[in-house]
Amino acid sequence: MPDTPRIGVFICHCGTNIAGTVDVEKVAEFARSLDNVAFAETSKYACSDPGQQAIQKAVAEHRLNRIVVAACSPRMHEPTFRACLAQVDLNPFVLEMANIREGCSWVHLREPALATSKACDLVRMAAAKARLLEPLSVRKYPVKRAAMVVGGGIAGIQAALDIADTGAMVYLVERGPCLGGTMAQLNKTYPTMDCAI
């Protein structure tokens, strides 16, 4: 990883979800004015295949080593963009997202000017953090091939059987003295009109 940050900023339209409120071109222009930003552009749908390919292409062409995606919440698509970076051998953790959809365009629908200015702030903040991001490696844990299912009604029974059939061990924990739950108390069930047990 070269020492000098070369940040790429990608501002997503998300169709009209963001671009309907936020002036995304203005945000891109603002991003270009920020320190260490080597490239900034908008994207119709950053998470789509063409959107991701555009990011990957820009990484190569502009030797980007830090990425800001201004789009939806990181709780939504952070894994998507991390995987996108990993495909072009960029460390997935040099990504910072600016949440300009859930945290901006969707909650300031009737204030496009303010929303645009807030989106600029969020991009500036993301770039400031991105500048200091460092590559990290994912931790790996062993996984015990066993599951606990809590509740022995129809849901617990079905889940336990499906898991157990794959060869994993299942501990089925039921409060009552037997299986069946509410379902067992039903006489007939719809739509088949047959016995519940």
């Binding site: 790996k140 996984v143 849901a155 079905q158 889940a159």
Partner: peptide, 25 residues
């Protein structure tokens, strides 16, 4: 309920099938 239970089982098995899982660093 049955649909969701199978989905939950599928999600659980998906995690357990690899022998190890990755976690954020």
């Amino acid at each position: 309920t049955v649909t969701q239970a199978s989905a939950a089982a599928g999600r659980a098995v998906r995690l357990m099938s690899q022998g190890e899982i990755a976690a954020d660093p």
